[in-house]
Amino acid sequence: MAEDDSPASAPDLGTVLAETRRRLAGAGIGEAALDARLIVEHFSGTRRIDALRDPALGLDALTVGRIEDAVGRRLAGMPVHRILGYREFYGLRLDLSPETLEPRPDTETLVEAMLPDLAGIAARKGACSILDLGTGTGAVALALLSALPQARASGVDLSAGAVKTATENAGRLGLDGRFTAFVSDWYRDVIGVFDAIVSNPPYITTVEMRALPVEVAGHDPHLALDGGPDGLDAYRVIAAGAGGHLDREGLVGVEIGSRQKADVAAVFAAQGLRLRSVARDLGGHDRALVFGF
């Protein structure tokens, strides 16, 4: 690589950060400045304040090489959090794996939509039980547990790799005493009745899957994305099985695609579950629906 195109030619923190930002921006990456900062800080073990206070801080060749490798992967379309191996969600650091969907800020809408009612259940009963269908990293369940000390959660996923990742995340966060994850095809191996069922299920239509950008289609597991021909397959399963696993005063909360509100509500209505509330994400799109009997 040419001398002026590599951070290795000037191995100090400020220059490496500026060069990384320049290369990502030059490739048309929308959040180049943020991605550059995340990459450089992660692989150099520095903080944001370090680049401001001591931009001349020297970086050794091994560190610069790791940053260079990460930049190459980002330029090839790998999402920055896949490169880092983790993502922050609801204030929690969650490790990722190839078998897990990368949790995104929109999904925090589901957490916020469920919390008030679940807090009420926990206060009334002194406890609260949650079933997280398609748990992935454990994001939704673990976020709820972090906010509800009286709650316990079971997370199920078809992927053994996802179950392993969710279990490890719970342990790292000190929530493993209240969280159990196991392999199940939706409700197949689930036993018991819960105060809440939550899910961020696959809801992209099979046709839309073909048009997904490489950053999504090439790195998020298709099992967690493809919702079938009309994007509603998972909702039908969740709604149909809720009656056997939901307390009569319990709630079902699901994330949806931005144009799926009416269709998903109809699926649940057919199983006797009425729409209680709708929550919008930061972009103003319908993102989470909460149902009850």
Results as ranks from 00 to 15, higher is better:
A240S: 14
T15I: 01
A127M: 09
G77T: 05
A25F: 03
F179H: 07
P103S: 10
D12G: 00
T15H: 15
R124V: 08
V216A: 10
D106I: 06
P7V: 09
E19F: 09
L144H: 00
P201H: 01
L52G: 06
D226W: 12
A217G: 12
T107H: 02
F293D: 05
R259F: 07
A33N: 08
D286E: 13
L131S: 11
F179L: 03
D281Y: 11
T137R: 01
G228R: 08
A269F: 00
R248Y: 10
R276Q: 12
A10Q: 13
G228Y: 08
D132W: 06
L92E: 00
M78Y: 01
D12R: 14
I49S: 14
L232G: 12
A76E: 13
V140A: 00
D106T: 12
H81M: 11
G272N: 04
E255F: 08
G257V: 10
D226F: 14
Q260W: 11
L131R: 05
R37N: 09
A143F: 04
E255P: 06
L225G: 11
R287Q: 08
H219Q: 08
R93P: 01
R104W: 12
D247F: 02
A76M: 05
R124A: 15
D95R: 15
A240Y: 05
A18T: 13
R172H: 03
G257L: 12
G292C: 07
A139W: 02
L24C: 11
A2W: 11
T180M: 13
G272H: 05
G192Q: 09
V80W: 07
P202C: 08
G174T: 02
E3N: 08
I29L: 13
P229S: 14
G58D: 13
G244K: 15
A269R: 12
T180A: 15
P213Y: 10
L59T: 09
H219N: 10
T46N: 09
D69L: 11
P229T: 14
I191R: 15
A139C: 00
D117K: 14
L148D: 00
K164V: 11
D189Y: 02
L13D: 06
L101P: 02
V80M: 12
V264Y: 10
Q150A: 15
G28H: 04
L92C: 01
T137N: 02
H245Q: 07
D230Q: 07
A139F: 03
I49M: 13
R47P: 00
D106F: 07
E215A: 13
H285C: 12
G58H: 14
P213W: 07
A18W: 02
T180Y: 05
E215W: 05
A151L: 03
T109S: 01
V267R: 05
A266Y: 01
G292F: 06
C128M: 09
